[in-house]
Each structure stands twice: as C-alpha cells, then as structure tokens.
Design a protein around this nucleic acid. Structure first.
Lengths: 250, 250
DNA sequence: GCACAGCGTTCCACAATGTGGCACGGCTCA
DNA sequence: TGAGCCGTGCCACATTGTGGAACGCTGTGC
C-alpha cells in the first residue's frame, strides 16, 4: 500500500532472522534488490538496535537482542519459549517426529514460532513464521476448541476455505470436530491443509483458560498410524499441559 | 543515519509494545508527530503482520505474533533456554530469590531473556527484554570479566555512566573489580544500578570460553547478607558452570 | 607475482516516495 | 443539541530513499 521502504525493511529483518548470520550479498540474491538498497537498510536496522554485525565475522548480520523487548501482550512477562522447549524436546524423543509450537494471530491465522526436528530422512517441514488457517490445521482447531462460541461463529461466518478433499469446510462438521477435541483433548489433521501432512495438536492455556499457543506432532501421511492416534494424542496433550503448568508455576 | 521512515516505524513499534493496546492519539502525543503520519505507519506495520488491531477495541493497536519469529541467533535453535532452565530452578530453590538469565547485546547492554521467580512477597522484578548497562550490573560485569581486555578498554573509553553512589564509574575501580570476579568466580552488585537492588552473577561460557550469557540471583538490599556472599556466589557460579556444561554435552 | 573475480562499501543526481496540514464523519459527554 | 475528541482520507510539495556506477579490499588461479 504505502511506506515501501518500511515494508521492505521488515521483510529484510525477517530474512535475516531466518538466515542469520547472513551477508549483504546473500540478501541481495534472495530479494533481487540492488546491493546499496539492502546495505542501507541493514545499517539503518542496526543503528536502531534491531540488527548487529556478527562479532566473529563482521560482514555477517544477525538479529540483536532488542527484539526481545517487543512481544505480543498475551506473552509479555511470560516465557512461552522457555516453558515449551523441554517438553517439546521430550515429546520429539518419545515419538521421533517433528514438533512445532504455533500461536494464533488475531483469529486470522496460526504462526509457527518454534520447532524441534526429528531425524527421519523424510519428514514434514515448518519454517518459523509460517502461517496457516485456523480451521484447516490441527494447531488451529486446538485453539478454536478453547475459544468462546461467539469467536468460532465469527470465523465460520467469514467462510471456511477448502484446501483439500478432507478440509472440514462445512460449519457443522467443524463444530462437531471441536466438540470431539474438547472431549479427547487433542486435535487431528489428516491431509486437511497440505496434502501428505498430518498432525496431532493440543492447546497451551494461561491461568484464565485462554489458549496462548498449540503444540503439534507433525508427520508425513505415510507414517500416520491410526492405531497409535490416541496414544500420541495423549502425549501431545500431556506436553501441552506441562507447558501450561510451567507458565503458571515455574 | 538515513531511512527516517524506517527508524521512526521501529520506534513506534517499540512504543506500541510498551503501551499496548494503544491508540493513534496516544502515540501522536508521545512522539509529537502528525496524526496522519502515525496512522499511516501503524497501518503499514499491521499489513506486514507486526501489529494488529485489538480484538475488543479495534481503535487500539497491539503487537502481532509475527515478531515471535524474529529472535537473536544466540537463542535461535540453540539450547540455551533448555540448558539453563533446570539449574536456574534449582538455584532458586536453594536461595529462594529471583533468578534471571541475561545475554549481552553487542557489548552495548545486557538483555533479560529468562526468569525464575521466588515466593517472597517483596522481591526484585525483571521483565523479559529489560536492558541494563554492562559496567553497572552484576550480569554485565560477569560478562566483561571474560572478555578480551581490548573490549573492556573500548567500553571504558566510551565513558562509564554513574547511576548511584556505588556505581563503579572509575576505570581503575572497574578493572580491579573484574580481576576480583575472575578470582572469585562471581560478580557482585550492591545498589550499583537501581537503588535497593543487589545481585550475584556468573557467566555461561561456550566451548571457546566466550561468554554467552550470565545467570544472577537478585534480591532487595534489605535481604542482602554479606556473611552468605561467598556461599551464594559459589552457588551462582556452580549453576552457571552447570549450564555451560549442558550446552557442551547436550 | 599479476590479473581477475567477487565481495562489501560509498557516492550522488534523480524522481519516487513519504510527509503533514487540512477537512470529513462518527462518537461521546455535557 | 452542540462541542470536543478521535480515527480516517486526501493531495500538492519537497524531502527522502533509490539504485547504477565506481572504489577498495581480499582471495584465487593462471
């Protein structure tokens, strides 16, 4: 819309976060922008404290600690990452599949904020910062199941896009599935969003029961084992509860 | 020293983080900028996903989840949190005071990245993201004591601001204190920065001896017991060493 | 040992971009 | 009902950011 330089600077900031420590040249290739433009942007971001030169290789840029002061209100003062890290690792060790942590962004989408990889040669991949729709993924529905009905109906009214044959795009189907999630404690995604990608997810709650985030075990459809669904679902729910507990008690 | 719009946008982003949820009017007063300029900036930041309208009061703005995807390299994918968490909790249990973990930001300041609270009704408080000067705090000096002399002299050359009567603002005093820290293994802060706040801190080192972070026990001056200083100092140093060890071993 | 290629950095004339004063419309409170 | 805010939209202007080109450094291969 406007403020091209600002939009571009934020894109560059995100790219640095993903590829840090990164050089000017790598970024120019990534964006196809003139070197001088990228360079100027990096220096500006660095002066503002959001970036800094790597101490060992000063031609490489990385994210500065300043960004830690900027966090969503729901998480301010809390340590979601710290609380989630160990339970996520233990969950990965138990199931040997990719684990990820996602937070809802204004009921618009889910954003992947952390990830623990497994060692399968074939595995699902989620980049930090990736977004996905609330109704079509396990993490999204894990959140939805904990929200007031009013919010869910608002989302339904906006229309439920269909991404695959199995996406729960019918309002009643979605409502029924949210009931099941509340009963069983975990959400399921079988190729609902991206073909070939399945997941089991459960919500992390704050002290008032508001869902802050969701943890998921994600795997290729080829490894999805219906017989272990409830066992793994319980494991995910257990990890999510542990994270919730750590956020409260410490 | 260019890209005024970018610099200003980041300032506004930080202000939103501090005051969220906040209105356009409040921000215009804060910065003394024209309404339309602030408004345009907010819309641009929101379109990029960094801000969003508050769900309950859509005239108020707050930080979006996107920012969580942007983290310093020292924390990204690394196990610093995971390695630090349990030793920090054990340290808290041993001394029943607030424990915090801080990382240095480009030799400019220390930033609090994690915290474990105690249950005293009166206790010190550190928000995640809070910054403090290197020379005036225990965590800062714990880091400084492990850095090459060159870096320390560079900092001294920049001038040592005095925050209280006891701030070690004299270069020789600081150098002597860094020597003591290397000998004893822990740094001490007695009202050097914020009046009434004392702390004992020790550095977390990587395999090359570079200081990555510092752990601190922080307490009100009223509970600072000089007789237990060396005992607690050793405990903090022990916790820091344990974290360093976990980072190496896995 | 020299020439070249690739890199980060600097410069500057140009015009695209962001600016901010102003005005509109909705809301709240007196 | 009217005054005082507040968020929003508009537009002519000139400040601001742009990006091509050139510089200097480093490492490599002939």
């Amino acid at each position: 819309m406007e403020m091209k330089s600002v939009t571009r600077s934020l894109r560059i900031l995100e790219a640095v976060a993903q590829h840090q420590p990164v050089t000017v040249g790598e970024l120019t290739k990534l964006f196809g922008l003139p070197k001088s433009t990228v360079q100027r942007t990096l220096v500006t971001l660095a002066e503002a404290g959001w970036l800094r030169a790597n101490r060992k290789d000063t031609t490489r840029w990385e994210i500065g600690a300043r960004v830690l002061a900027v966090r969503p209100a729901a998480l301010q003062g809390s340590s979601l990452f710290a609380a989630a890290r160990e339970p996520m690792i233990r969950l990965r060790d138990a199931v040997n599949e990719t684990i990820h942590l996602s937070v809802p962004d204004a009921l618009q989408c889910m954003v992947v904020v952390d990830r623990v990889d497994c060692d399968h040669p074939v595995r699902t991949f989620h980049s930090i910062g990736d977004t996905s729709p609330l109704h079509a993924t396990a993490v999204g529905r894990a959140i939805l199941a904990q929200l007031p009905k009013r919010d869910v109906e608002e989302l339904i009214a906006q229309g439920l896009e269909r991404f695959s044959d199995t996406t729960p795009a019918d309002p009643d189907e979605l409502r029924a599935e949210l009931d099941r999630i509340r009963t069983d404690g975990y959400a399921i995604n079988r190729n609902h969003y991206r073909p070939g990608v399945c997941a089991l997810a459960a919500p992390v709650l704050d002290e008032s029961g508001t869902p802050l985030a969701a943890v998921a075990v994600s795997m290729p459809d080829s490894r999805y084992d219906a017989d272990r669904e409830s066992e793994w679902g319980d494991r995910v729910a257990g990890a999510a509860e542990e994270i919730s507990g750590r956020l409260l008690g410490g």
